[in-house]
């Protein structure tokens, strides 16, 4: 038999419960711990930036703007400047991008548009694997395997395109026995190895953006009778333009900071020169790796300043890349 609850006539009137929106108990501890972890990481990472900035003050006070125009790095003569290494860094990065950009774009297009569906995930894995290979391995590859071929290529370029100032080399290209040593250890050779590191990164971003192209638009282009290339040219590339630019700039950021492969390949030289095929160049990161051992006092601070300048350049490039990718139509959800 069902019993109905008897009404308590003498019960007090119901008062609406006050809902607490603050954390209680373990949640408060959790929020506190998480917040302090975030703060720790902020202090560590932000501390590096602040430290580098503070360290560069005495250098800039001591050398002034000559720090950016002086090419030599001679601690004994108190002549320190990063003009030559900055130009060298840009040259190596430009060579790397000139090689990596077309290859990355073509590979990304192949994976997203041409490859059979069964092969696609394997190819994506291979590109990711390429990104995971350590830079020292690419350095060995560039130094022992590619450099002899690269010097022959440099000779060929000098013979046929030597009238361009950046393909000029201070050696006779038509000599009976060509001076091989003049054609190695150049920005060109280093750029090839760096290109291998940059390529998978750019390619991954581009491919991801291409794969987000709306199928409807692609099918519309095909249904209107366009060829596959016509569809790529009119739909995929315009849609993925943000990804192409962003991926390239992210790669550029990596190329600027690359150290060990460059250090292994180049022969250091403190000269501003446009001749990328000729022996001798230097980059900011190779300068740091080569000079830190003897550095004390003002020289160490100068090295830190050079590192700071490099960091600022990379930061600007990466930030621009992020903005370009996010602003583009295809940018939503890109995480690279």
């Amino acid at each position: 038999m069902t019993t109905l609850p008897r009404e308590h006539l003498d019960a007090v009137e119901a008062v609406p419960r006050v809902l607490a929106s603050t954390n209680t108990g373990s949640d408060r501890v959790f929020a506190y711990v998480a917040r302090s972890t975030g703060a720790t990481v902020l202090v560590i990472t932000g501390g590096i930036g602040v430290f580098l900035a503070v360290q560069s003050v005495p250098t800039l006070k001591h050398y002034g703007l000559h720090f950016f125009t002086q090419t030599q790095w001679q601690p004994d003569a108190d002549k320190l400047g990063i003009a030559a290494v900055l130009v060298g860094t840009l040259e190596v990065a430009m060579v790397a991008m000139a090689i990596a950009f077309p290859l990355a774009l073509a590979t990304a297009l192949f994976i997203s548009e041409y490859a059979p569906a069964k092969l696609r995930s394997t190819l994506i894995s291979l590109v990711d694997l390429m990104a995971a290979v350590p830079s020292i391995i690419y350095g060995l590859w560039g130094f022992f395997l590619v450099e002899p071929h690269a010097s022959e290529m440099a000779l060929f370029l000098q013979r046929h395109f030597g009238f361009l100032p950046f393909f000029h080399i201070g050696a006779d290209p038509n000599a009976a026995v060509w001076d091989r040593s003049r054609y190695t250890a150049s920005a060109f050779c280093a750029g090839i190895a760096v290109a291998m590191m940059v390529l998978p990164m750019s390619c991954a971003v581009m491919r991801q953006v291409f794969s987000q192209t709306p199928d409807g638009e692609k099918e519309a282009a095909l249904a209107l009778g366009s060829t596959r290339w016509g569809m790529i040219r009119t739909v995929v590339i315009p849609f993925g333009r943000g990804g192409i630019i962003g991926g390239t700039m992210l790669g550029l950021g990596r190329a600027l900071g690359e150290t060990i492969a460059v250090l292994l390949i180049i022969s250091p030289e403190f000269l501003i020169k446009p001749r990328i095929l000729e022996i001798g160049t230097n980059t900011v990161s190779a300068l740091i790796a080569g000079q830190f051992g003897e550095a004390t006092g003002i020289q160490l601070s100068a090295l830190l300043t050079a590192g700071f300048v490099l960091f600022i350049i990379t930061l600007i490039v990466n930030t621009l890349a992020a903005i370009v990718v996010n602003r583009s139509r295809s940018g939503a959800g890109t995480d690279a």
């Binding site: 975030g38 703060a39 990481v41 902020l42 990472t45 932000g46 590096i48 930036g49 430290f51 580098l52 360290q55 950021g253 600027l256 900071g257 690359e258 150290t259 990161s285 740091i288 790796a289 830190f292 160490l300 090295l303 830190l304 590192g307 700071f308 490099l310 960091f311 990379t314 930061l315 490039v317 990466n318 930030t319 992020a322």
Partner: peptide, 22 residues
Amino acid sequence: VRTVVEAMTALPSIVAGLFIYS
């Protein structure tokens, strides 16, 4: 925190080493 962490992914590894060194 997110902004700073994203910015620091741009830190070249050699500069990270130089920071600890100094």
